[in-house]
């Protein structure tokens, strides 16, 4: 059975640009703490995308590991090294 995703394309239109914006922002932001937080937002958007594709287990992992713990770990690291990235 191919799933009927006619209702879901609006979510795609909403989520995909935000994912791209977050990914670019995470790369370009000079402040490392800001970049860590944007990475967390990116992870959360990816989690929503996984849910939309009905991969609930992956989405759950992404929410717990990606958006939750790894953001905290990146933040903890960013606060201990020089905050501004040179490049």
């Amino acid at each position: 059975m191919i799933l009927d995703n006619t209702i879901l394309w609006q979510f795609d239109v909403l989520l995909l640009p935000m994912v791209i914006i977050c990914a670019l922002a995470a790369l370009t932001i000079k402040d490392l703490v800001g970049a860590a937080i944007v990475t967390g937002a990116y992870s959360f958007l990816m989690c929503l995308l996984w849910t939309e594709m009905l991969a609930v287990d992956v989405a759950f992992t992404e929410a717990a590991v990606g958006a939750g713990v790894s953001t905290i770990l990146l933040l903890a690291t960013a606060l201990h090294i020089k905050r501004k990235a040179k490049d």
Binding site: V56, D57, A59, F60, T61, A64, V65, G68, V69, I72
Partner: peptide, 24 residues
């Protein structure tokens, strides 16, 4: 999440991360 990992989404990794996050 750990106990129902084989009946609903979730499992050891997710449950473990949430447990660890509670200590964090």
């Amino acid at each position: 999440v750990i106990a129902h990992g084989h009946h609903s989404p979730g499992g050891g990794f997710q449950g473990g991360v949430i447990l660890g996050a509670s200590f964090i």
